[in-house]
Amino acid sequence: MEDLVKQEKIILTVIMIIEDLVQDWELNLDEAISQETFLVNDLNFSSVDIIQLCVALEQNYERKLGFHELLMEDGKYVGDLSIQQISVFLESKLKNQ
């Protein structure tokens, strides 16, 4: 139960930071940003935008989070990420630190 609450809190934090990030981007979103939202496919993120999101999350949690572990898979960069994936990654990182 405690874990679920923590996960929910992380998802809300990620959504809040992304909403703040994209507020001036003039995106025409059909649906509100949720854990199912993908950064590239739904929000038109470029690589620089992903870097800036990583910086924003690290600033929020006031620690290094080693995002390369999330961004790279088998030596290659992942094509897209959902908010759910980011939240799960953050939960594991925050648990271990």
Binding site: S46, S47, V48, I50, I51, C54, V55, E58, K64, G66, F67, H68, L71, M72, Y77
Partner: peptide, 13 residues
């Protein structure tokens, strides 16, 4: 601090 890595596309830009 270690900045997030840049992928090829972005390096190109």
């Amino acid at each position: 601090n270690e900045s997030a890595r840049i992928e090829d596309d972005e390096k190109e830009k």
